[in-house]
Amino acid sequence: MLASISPPRMTRLERLLILTLVIGCVTLFSGAVAQDGYGYGTTATPTANVTPTTEANVTITSPEEGAGVPAGNVTVSVNLTNFTLVEPTGQPNAPGEGHLHYYLDAVVPTNASAPAIPETGGYVVSTNTSYTWENVTAGAHNLSVQVVNNDHTPIIPLVFDTVNVTVGGNVTGNATVVNLTAENIAFDTDTITVPAGANVTVNFDNKDDGVPHNLAVYTDSSAAEKIFVGEIITGPATTNYTFTAPSEPGTYFFRCDVHPQQMTGDLIVE
């Protein structure tokens, strides 16, 4: 009769070593494999989060390059795309948002790591698509606008526009300035009087939030023959329109093209 041979017993240390190896293998395996929705292992693969973006763009729409404008208040109006103007300024930077810097007779700053503050000339921070420089003296001037981050540093690539104008020069006829406000779907006046042949500047203030308005001048109320049609702006915003009044005295017609029934008036040329 053969004697039974018992397997050697493992010591406590050997059992502990084996347990440690088993736990380590399980941990390594679980870290390299992710479970799919059905419980089967799939290899974990990092995915790139790529969001297409469109570059911002800004263009000065008024005054135009080389324009002659009357001395006094000069309004710069711009068209801004693919960028959101936010309040307040100075908060942490975020892609696609910030504000504008308007410059008068200044070199546009280009240092991406410093606030866009020119060494000379005037500048102002704004979240509006227009700004009026007050009491601009006669002579040659340049007007610029730049898109900047919330912390006032320029966005990269640089986005800006500049026009050169002559204030108080190249203005034919009598220079006449008119203030016109649109509010509650109405003009603040139904009569504008100007000299015959005058170079007319209309400081236009659209106070209706989210509502588009403009100023358009026609020979009569049929609006069949235009004298001047201004750009439509959505309020609250300001701009200035410049046109030459008819040389023949008489009563002409103006309106808002967006609201041709509610917003009308007479342009009296003397």
Rank of each mutant, 00 (worst) to 15 (best):
E119N: 13
G121V: 00
G122L: 12
Y123T: 01
V124N: 10
V124W: 12
V125I: 07
T127C: 10
N128M: 14
T132K: 12
V136P: 02
T137D: 13
G139L: 03
A140E: 13
N142P: 00
L143V: 05
V145I: 04
Q146A: 08
V148I: 05
N150K: 10
N150P: 00
D151A: 03
D151F: 05
D151V: 00
H152Q: 07
I155C: 04
I155W: 09
V159R: 15
V159G: 05
D161Y: 08
N164C: 02
T166E: 15
V167F: 11
G168S: 06
G168V: 03
G168I: 03
N170A: 14
A175M: 07
V178K: 11
A182V: 00
A182R: 01
E183F: 08
N184K: 09
N184C: 01
V202A: 08
V202Y: 09
G210D: 01
V211H: 02
P212W: 01
A216Q: 05
V217G: 03
Y218W: 13
T219R: 15
S221G: 02
S221W: 09
S221R: 14
A223R: 15
A224Q: 14
K226V: 02
F228T: 04
V229N: 11
V229K: 15
V229G: 07
G230A: 05
I233L: 14
I233G: 07
P236T: 10
T239Y: 05
T239M: 05
T239F: 05
E248Y: 01
T251W: 10
V258Y: 11
